[in-house]
């Protein structure tokens, strides 16, 4: 399931909903991304996430479908927020559920790595020095690329 929303989410409620009634699930792996309080060494006031409505949902659904093609998942969930966020705020929740832990761990890491480089989101950071658009990291591309060699 894909949710793209401005408002915060409740991780415990989301994970409980993910597995409710499905007793084939033996393990759930999850990742929560949070806003840090520093940007390039300067204190961060806020971060604004811009996205491309319509394409965002489509790309996240494609990435989720790819995970479910590669691993035997019983359930999966991506919640990604947009708009203005402050340090400590939740940005993203990725969760995968499978009969066994390896598939859950691996597919969760895959989803996080792929959505960073394939979903149309852009971060704008506000510090005391002003605002700046976050540049894509070479490390993110490398993290995403490791899944194409398997």
């Amino acid at each position: 399931m894909i949710r793209v929303q401005r408002e915060d989410f409740d991780p415990a409620a989301a994970l409980a909903e993910l597995t409710r009634g499905n007793h084939r699930i033996g393990g759930v792996a999850s990742f929560i991304g949070l806003v840090r309080d520093v940007a390039e060494g300067a204190p961060l006031r806020a971060m604004t996430l811009e996205h491309y409505p319509g394409m965002t949902e489509k790309k996240l659904a494609e990435i989720e479908a790819e995970a479910r093609r590669r691993w035997p998942l019983e359930a999966s969930l991506v919640i990604h927020r947009y708009g203005r966020l402050e340090p400590g705020d939740r940005i993203v929740l990725v969760a995968t559920a499978s009969p066994h832990r390896a598939a859950a761990f691996e597919s969760c890491a895959f989803l996080v790595d792929w959505l960073k480089t394939k979903a149309p989101f852009w971060k704008h950071e506000e510090t005391e020095a002003g605002g700046r658009w976050v540049e894509a990291r070479v490390g993110d591309d490398a993290a995403a690329a490791r899944w194409t060699q398997e």
Partner: peptide
């Protein structure tokens, strides 16, 4: 048109 993505 957009720059490389920085989500997640």
């Amino acid at each position: 048109l957009f720059p490389p993505m920085t989500g997640g």
